[in-house]
C-alpha cells in the first residue's frame, strides 16, 4: 500500500499549499490537486463508481470556486491578534485530536472490515435486486430513501442558489 500513502502525502501537501497560498486563484487550483488525488485514491481502494463521480464533482467545484474568485482577488491582511488566534486554533485542534484518538483506537485493523450488514448484501444482492453492481443495488434498492433525500437536497440547494443570485426585484 505504498502508493496509497504516497498519494495521501501528495494530497496533504496540496492542502497545505491551498491553505497557505496568498493568491486565491492558486489556492483554488491547489484544492483541485487534492480532489483529483482523491479520485486516484478511490481507484486504488477498489471504488470505481466513486472515482468517476469524484472526478466530475471536482471539476464542477473548481468551476464554481473560480467563478466566485475571479476578478475579486484582493490581498488580505493578516494583522490583528496573531498569537491569540493561532493559540486558540491549535487548542481546538488538540481537543479534536484527543476525541478522535479515543474513537479511532477501537476501529478494526486497516484492511479487515467487519462487514456485518454487507455480508448479506454481497450474498443476496444479485438475487434480490438483479443488479450486478452492488453499489447501485444499495443506493437504488436497499437505501432508495437515502437517494430520494439526496435528490431533495440537490433541488433545494439549486433553488437556494437561484434565490440568492437573483437580480430581479432587488433594491438598489
Amino acid at each position: 500500500m505504498l502508493e496509497l500513502q504516497l498519494l495521501l502525502i501528495f494530497m496533504i501537501i496540496g492542502a497545505i499549499i491551498a491553505v497557505k497560498e496568498k493568491d486565491l486563484l492558486s489556492s483554488v487550483i491547489a484544492v483541485g490537486t487534492v480532489g483529483l488525488g482523491l479520485s486516484l485514491v478511490f481507484l486504488i481502494l477498489k471504488a470505481p463508481d466513486l472515482a468517476i463521480v469524484q472526478l466530475v464533482v471536482e471539476i464542477l467545484v473548481i468551476i464554481i470556486l473560480i467563478r466566485a474568485t475571479i476578478r475579486r482577488d484582493l490581498p488580505f491582511s493578516t494583522s490583528g491578534r496573531w498569537f491569540f488566534n493561532t493559540l486558540v486554533t491549535f487548542v481546538f485542534i488538540g481537543v479534536f485530536l484527543v476525541f478522535i484518538y479515543l474513537y479511532i483506537k477501537d476501529l478494526p485493523q486497516f484492511g479487515q472490515p467487519i462487514m456485518k450488514i454487507a455480508q448479506r448484501f454481497i450474498a443476496e444482492g444479485l438475487r434480490e435486486t438483479g443488479a450486478t453492481n452492488l453499489v447501485s443495488s444499495v443506493i437504488l434498492d436497499y437505501r432508495a430513501y437515502d437517494t430520494l433525500g439526496e435528490a431533495t437536497i440537490l433541488f433545494t440547494a439549486v433553488m437556494g442558489v437561484l434565490a440568492v443570485m437573483r437580480k430581479v426585484g432587488r433594491k438598489k
Partner: peptide, 18 residues
C-alpha cells in the same frame, strides 16, 4: 470490499457539491 460505505459516500459527494 464493503459496498455499503461506497454507496453512502456516493450520496455524500453529490450533497457536498450542492
Amino acid at each position: 470490499v464493503d459496498p455499503l460505505p461506497q454507496a453512502l459516500v456516493l450520496t455524500a459527494i453529490v450533497i457536498g457539491l450542492a
